[in-house]
Amino acid sequence: MSGGMSGPIRRSASARRLVAIGVTLIVLLSPFLWLLQMSFKSNDLILQFPPPLIFTPTLQNYASLWQGAFPASFVNSLMSASFSTALALILGVPAAYALSRWAGRGKHALSFAILVTRMAPPIAFTIPFFLFYRWIGLLDTVTGLVLVYTSFNLPLVIWMMQPFFETVPSSLEEAALVDGASTRIVFLQIVLPMVAPGIAATAILCFLYAWNDFFFALILTRTNARTAPVAVVNFMNYEGWEWGKIAAGGSLVMAPVLIFSLAVRRYLVSGLTAGAVKG
């Protein structure tokens, strides 16, 4: 990738191109920015047209959210996303390593099965999960959500980590093995540190997917384990939509993933493309 970075096509960005990039960015992000500015407006201002570009921002929408049940849903989201990410990594990383080093015949079939699990529409899991949870009492619990999220995060980990393991030269491992180290030691002490960026990228994606889930949480939670995305929909009232609160809620729900993604953008890019680019 870093081979011929000095080609004439990519060497310099003309001013015109930079302007084009800037304009495209603004146009593309304008719906998102609209939500953001709305969250700082009072309801009267929201309904005011033409929309005032300069206004005194108010935090009243956010403040009113903080008094309701919203913070609890935020914590639920945080817990279910973190725990399912951890669980998926603990289970999936060794499995991905084993698969990447496995030349056995069932490999392709197994990879395919894992991919399908990842691709299946959520509704396929919700019905059985709902009935099963109902039966053993996991409905409306964070544990229940963690399990469900693991059902799509575990395949993701296995699928995404394999290419990273494949980039680790096997000569390194063989040298260690010849020295008498066990595979477990080789894996933990030599291979794992080398794929740390891959693990980070994978973890980010797992967290993102779990945090962003709406469908499972809608069906499998009631009130105790309600997550932030479902809680936001709750501001769409029977008796009138509280636009300011909806906008503030939406902004809050997207804040963690946004901050997170921008902070680790390098990993994010490799994470988002890894599984797919490798094919």
């Binding site: 009935l131 109902r134 409905l139 809608l218 009631r222 009130t223 479902v230 009232n237 029977y238």
Partner: peptide, 23 residues
């Protein structure tokens, strides 16, 4: 007392009751 949005409540309560729930 848990209050939800109209469509969310109906869907969840209907599911809860139809499946014999006691929540």
């Amino acid at each position: 007392l848990q209050l939800s949005a109209f469509p969310v409540y109906n869907q969840q309560a209907n599911l809860e009751l139809s499946s014999g729930g006691s929540a």
